[in-house]
Nucleic acid binder design. Structure first.
Lengths: 286, 286
DNA sequence: TCTTTCTGTTCTATATCAGATACAGAAACC
DNA sequence: GGTTTCTGTATCTGATATAGAACAGAAAGA
């Protein structure tokens, strides 16, 4: 059944983990001995042991009997990263095999929040789909999507399992013009945890996105959860403007392969949406 | 000391929480009764009760004796949001009182990762500071900063507690030209949890940022942790380009107030933040 | 009003976890 | 080789979460 999760052990595990990843405990160095740790933190050695077990499982430490417990050099964990400028598209470019599993599909009445975000008419239902994105055989994101019913019927259930939703929408003649998204964090519940191969209560990167058509009508509402060890958001910024109005502007990230100069943000053909404070083209929502 | 955290109760809590925030259980609707939930999930009613207690603490549900347990319309607390274009600067503009507490300060030898990120010379040390950002009296971010020693000495410890680090750096004649950042998620360890007023093991939004001078030299390495219920990243994107090269471009977000007015009065008299997903049990004795 | 169905509360077994101790094997140092 | 200091392993005891049940009070419907 659900492997039980100790309590003080977890506490100590998190403490040590923080110390290690924050660099307080340096790579190659030896941790205090188990008896020492036990005394330092007022717990028994068994508990210390459980915490160290977890760290060892994740490859953060290495235990050498008779010698001690040693901090591992950063466990070279390069998660897939997403750049904001192109959202998921670069995954395909990178030639990595990503597949999608459709976990759930159906039409439901919208919640108030959904109805408002998508600007639904009264009584209109939404298509709800839950998908799991897998890269190189390993799941990394759990996607809950809501689409207005009249739009959702333009593609089939099978389409959803094979193509990106945005592509399907645009194929249907819809134009995704604007999107608004929020990035946060949350804990993994049982189903998400299982789908992503995580423990219950693991940390998740959460993204909420609403995509709008030029009309201002919402066409997609996405609730995405990412395994932070396999996926993260990454971006480069440059300082622009002068004086008091200096600010940071995102630039397209240099990726491996198609070398883009790291310093010079030259590449950026036409689209330099350098906007100043006031002039945000806010077409929607007066 | 450490208030113990049940296990099955937590599991059920997370399950129900997901259902509620994902909209599977609609606002105003009644949850299955406690005995029913107990049977459905193969746990005792005491356990169900503990899970519901937690949900009730966070304001996600409302319990009416004799009547049932009801899903609360998401009280959608509006977390402070950050736009990428201006990082933290808008907080000040918004006129909200933010203060900084310096938790730790000192000079330490860098870890290999740090040395490489900041392109340090051999033997060069770094200034390490831990700060806590507070808004309206409530902490929302925990910042661990590393700066090369030769740069760090250009400002005082007291400066750090009063001014943004970037401002200090630029005051010293340094130019922050480029930055590279990664956004992920992690769990709260004991010290971060305590500083931010969270439970151990709560979800955190994690940001790693390296700021570079025009020379390519790194001048600041930041490791930031945010309470997801009080702080999140938000951005608007527009679809640019044509044909195959279509992509999303970030635009500066419309500000004023916080999030854009959702229903009505954007004026949210700050008040006590109701919790949202990401759980945030404020330690209040019931 | 009577009945039913809820939540709120208390109680006592039981399963599971944490604390303490003892001992075996492995490595490092003298 | 002997000694010390580690990790690995096992066992016992106390603490606590969970299970199960019983009962009181509140709300809703017949």
């Amino acid at each position: 059944m659900s492997s039980v999760e100790p309590l003080k052990a977890r506490r100590l595990y998190l403490l040590l983990r923080d110390r290690i990843v924050s660099g307080e405990e340096r790579p190659q160095s030896r941790l205090p001995s188990e008896p020492t740790l036990a005394e330092q933190h007022g717990v028994s050695r068994v508990t210390v042991r459980r915490a160290l077990d977890k760290l060892a499982n994740e490859g953060l430490i290495e235990r050498r009997p008779g010698s001690g417990t040693f901090v591992n050099g950063s466990k070279a964990n390069f998660p897939v990263t997403a750049d904001f400028s192109n959202l998921l598209s670069h995954l395909v470019e990178m030639g990595r095999r990503t597949e999608v599993k459709l976990l759930s599909f159906g039409y439901v009445p919208p919640t108030p929040v959904l109805a408002e975000a998508l600007r639904l008419e009264a009584g209109e239902r939404v298509q709800r789909s839950v998908r799991l994105r897998v890269i190189d055989g390993q799941p990394f994101s759990y996607l809950v999507t809501h689409v207005p019913e009249r739009i959702g019927v333009s593609y089939s259930e099978a389409d959803l399992a094979s193509k990106p939703l945005l592509e399907l929408l645009e194929r249907s003649g819809l134009v995704a013009e604007r999107a608004s998204q929020t990035i946060g964090a949350t804990l993994a519940g049982p189903d998400i945890a299982e789908a992503l191969g995580l423990e219950i209560g693991a940390a998740l990167l959460a993204l909420t996105r609403v995509v709008y058509a030029p009309s201002g009508q919402g066409i997609e509402h996405l609730h995405a959860f990412y395994r932070p060890d396999r996926y993260s958001f990454q971006m480069d910024l440059v300082r622009t403007g002068a004086g008091n109005s200096r600010s940071w502007t995102p630039v397209e990230r240099a990726r491996k392969g198609d070398a883009k100069p790291r310093n010079e943000a030259s590449a950026r053909p036409e689209s330099n949406p350098q906007m100043r404070r006031g002039d945000v083209p806010r077409r929607t929502k007066a």
